[in-house]
Amino acid sequence: MTTVTPAMRARRRRAQRPPWEEPPTVPGRLGKGLLLTAVVLAVLIPMWSVIVTSFSSKQAIADAGGMVFLPRDFDISAYVLIFTRGEVSSAIWNSVFVTVVGTTLSLVCTVLAAYGLSRPGSLWHRPLLMFFLITFLIGPGLVPTYVVVTSLGLKDSHWALILPAAVNAFNLMVVRQFFMGIPAELLDSARIDGAGEWTILARIVLPLSKAVVAVVGLFYAVGYWNIYFNAVLYLNDAEDRVVQQVLQAYIIAGQSPAGIGSPPALGFNAPPSLAVKMAVVVVVLIPVVAVYPFIQRHFTKGVITGALKG
């Protein structure tokens, strides 16, 4: 006979209401449904409208008086423009570079350090742990960080975006916590078979830790993709710009996209300026939305519950 733990009961409760709970009232259900619908729509409507507008023709945008909500036609000229003309596409490549290189570096450093710290009692374990934990409490501040990064000659280099953000102690602790949960017998038996630490990490620990590595990888990748202010701070050349800077310039600062302000460039077939702007929004948005569902199911598995920074 299995005993019913609270956890199991909680799971069962999800499938159906427990007998002692009073049946839901009609106004209660209605209110709850309306509230949740409103919350979901508040997230979805802006995304929907931006995507629809980016695919809209001049006529549709003019008729709507701006943002389009109901799709009328399907026009990809805005995307053709941003991918064929320099500004946006070079920003995309810069951001892809920062994200891919940065995430790889971050994951390698984080996983290695997390494994190195996963065994209490090892040499210098405690001071090393404190070394990482103290970074939670004390942030270096903007001015001295700027001084260090520029003194190292990283100005106007994409490494200025990557290196200062490469190791996040919080992510490191999440991975370490997971590694520490792997049964010690498993590692010990490998050790008896003569495996070194590197082999154990690569052959035993990592295959068991795909979920946590994926989640932490997502955190790092999204962080790199979203870098805006450090790029403003460290990058001066227009061709070094990252996507968030282009987005800021087009929409928040209200510049007109390249090739739009000067009509002769594309003649009368130029796509509407608003559609081009919205296409840039979509380009910034899509990578996040595309990767996220694959990783999201792992959040709820408790890997990352501690991930809340206040």
Partner: peptide, 15 residues
């Protein structure tokens, strides 16, 4: 334990 320390080294240097 030296392999463990070596593994922590890159992150330590970056921080």
């Amino acid at each position: 334990d030296w392999p463990l320390l070596l593994m922590a080294l890159p992150a330590v240097l970056l921080l």
